[in-house]
């Protein structure tokens, strides 16, 4: 008798628990088959990314949508200025051979377009660090009168009205709803996958290549004279510094002070990465130097004594002519040709 009761209670238990588990599982099963997850690989020697992938999980469809948006003029007022008009893959996503880039209505940008890569490890964006999240970065070019000259509202409206985009949003996000958040997350998914870590320098680090004598000599000079600011592996320490280039009399750009309003930040700019630097000419925030030699020569003989000049540059940097030749050779080893030829980033 006792045995039978226990068996009965066991059966009840099994029944209840299956119902319980079923109730929970049912919800999981109702979720439609979603987009295909993509993992983000951290190159050897790179730290943990800053970007919050948990808040915007990478998917094949999300990245594809982001790429389509990046190359589509629909984000600009007259259709002529997609992101890619200023960010060209063969120039490591800087604007090729332009000090300032062209935007809407024959206007120029007020700064030199930087290359785009390794954005996942960045905390601050733009030359003055004014932008604090990769996802909200596109709002700046989209709404700037001298760049894409649009409103976010109107861009969303155009995407909704198109025939191509609703299915792409549905594939990426599970339903065809189009809003600014989804657009920005898709763009972020695409640009965050732009990782450049396969230059000759990286291969040397991995033991898969070796420097020439000149490159090695340049690397040695670099480590002792440049790396305090242009720190490996990103070739920037992420700080804001006045490297003594002096105020551009036409643009009158004070850099970081524009964001903080603090006089101590006048003429400080974000230390740029030097990866792919041979491709991203012209140089500095205003594109004033056309060659690497000129940029290096600046540190030797061109430092202007302006307020907040970095203490380490007060006397300039002592460099011999052969140091400059060797440094140039070394900087060219930072060119990542597999990155600029990577089909994943091409239209």
């Amino acid at each position: 008798m006792k045995l039978r009761l226990t068996i009965l209670s066991l059966m009840v238990l099994v029944l209840i628990s299956t119902i319980g588990v079923q109730a929970c599982r049912k919800k999981e099963m109702e979720v439609p088959k979603g987009p295909t997850p993509v993992s983000f690989d951290i190159p050897q020697g790179f730290p943990k990314p800053e970007y919050d992938f948990a808040g915007n999980p990478l998917t094949k469809e999300g990245i594809e949508l982001g790429k389509k948006l990046f190359y589509d003029g629909i984000l600009s007022a007259d259709g002529n200025f997609p992101c890619a008009s200023c960010h060209q893959q063969f120039a490591a996503f800087a604007t090729f051979d332009h000090d300032l880039s062209h935007g809407f209505n024959d206007a120029f940008t007020t700064r030199n377009a930087p290359g785009m890569f390794n954005l996942a490890w960045r905390k601050e964006f733009h030359h003055d660090g004014g932008i604090l999240n990769l996802e909200t970065q596109p709002l700046a070019p989209i709404t700037a009168k001298n760049e894409m000259a649009e409103t976010v509202d109107n861009v969303v409206r155009k995407l909704r009205a198109s025939t191509t985009y609703p299915p792409l949003f549905a594939a990426a996000f599970g339903d065809a709803e189009i809003n600014s958040q989804r657009m920005l997350k898709a763009l972020a998914q695409f640009v965050v996958t732009m990782v450049s870590a396969n230059s000759k320098y990286d291969k040397v680090k991995r033991g898969a290549a070796s420097f020439t004598q000149f490159e090695q000599a340049g690397y040695t000079v670099f480590q002792s004279k440049c790396a305090t600011c242009h720190q490996e592996p990103f070739f920037t320490d992420g700080s804001f510094r006045n490297n003594g280039i002096g105020l551009n009399p036409f643009l009158k750009d004070g850099g970081r002070i524009r964001i903080t309003g603090n006089a101590a930040d006048s003429m400080k700019f974000l230390v740029p990465s030097l990866r792919n630097v041979a491709l991203t000419f012209p140089y500095m925030h205003d594109g004033r130097f056309t060659s690497l030699q000129q940029s290096i020569e600046h540190y030797r003989s061109g430092i202007k004594q302006t307020p907040n000049l970095d203490p380490s540059l007060q006397l300039g940097i002592a460099l011999t002519n052969s140091d400059i030749v060797n440094l140039t050779a070394f900087l060219k080893t930072l060119t990542d040709s597999s990155f600029i030829n990577d089909k994943r980033f091409a239209p």
Binding site: I131, E135, T136, T143, Q181, M183, A188
Partner: peptide, 21 residues
């Protein structure tokens, strides 16, 4: 600083500075 938001916090509300987050 948490990235793209929606609803009341959507940038279409015209209450978000674009160049100075």
């Amino acid at each position: 600083v948490s990235g793209a938001q929606t609803g009341a916090l959507d940038p279409v509300q015209d209450m978000f500075w674009t160049w100075n987050t």
